[in-house]
């Protein structure tokens, strides 16, 4: 059933070494790829005339502490021409950098800033990597699993710096 998916077939033809795993769950196809080829794969998926995954719906991170590699970056792609969705995942370790896909889909600019803000993953070749949801002097990356929900200083009264 999974092999009927044109995108998966083409990916397997072109990047057979980088495809680590293909899964289908509830009619959704997920492809786990190696980090070093993510830029090439995304470029191929967005520019190939049959596939045309031109809408990057979402780019987010997931923290799988204590597994190694710790973080997973998930790309949700959508092809407006074929009305098809695809999920690409890749794993990155804690102090490694990720290539940025901002050159392919401009919307990744803000999504990657958000992943950097909340997880601490640095993206190479990003034009403007700084915090987006929290303020500039903030210490820590809240969405990591070892960060408390209430924040590290929840029992101290809050004093804003004016």
């Amino acid at each position: 059933m999974v092999e009927n998916n044109l995108a998966v077939k083409k990916l397997r033809e072109k990047f057979s070494v980088s495809i680590l795993e293909v899964k289908t769950f509830r009619d959704e196809t997920t492809v786990l790829v190696a980090k070093k080829d993510i830029l090439g794969i995304c470029q191929f998926l967005s520019s190939d005339p049959d596939l045309q995954f031109n809408l990057l719906t979402d780019l987010c991170g997931v923290d799988f502490l204590p597994e190694k590699p710790r973080f997973e970056i998930v790309y949700h792609l959508c092809s407006l021409k074929n009305n098809q969705r695809l999920r690409i995942k890749t794993r990155v370790e804690e102090n490694e950098t990720m290539p940025s896909v901002e050159s392919i889909w401009k919307v990744a600019n803000w999504y990657e800033r958000e992943v950097y803000d909340l997880f601490g993953i640095v993206f190479e070749n990003h034009p403007d990597l700084r915090r987006i949801l929290l303020w500039d002097g903030y210490q820590g990356h809240p969405l990591r699993k070892d960060y408390p929900t209430e924040g590290p200083d929840f029992d101290k009264p809050f004093v804003p710096e004016v």
């Binding site: 929290l134 809240p142 960060y147 408390p148 929900t149 209430e150 924040g151 590290p152 929840f154 009264p157 809050f158 004093v159 804003p160």
Partner: peptide, 13 residues
Amino acid sequence: FKTYSVVQGVDQI
């Protein structure tokens, strides 16, 4: 919202 980024009430400031 008892989280890391919310002030727990305006009367704190």
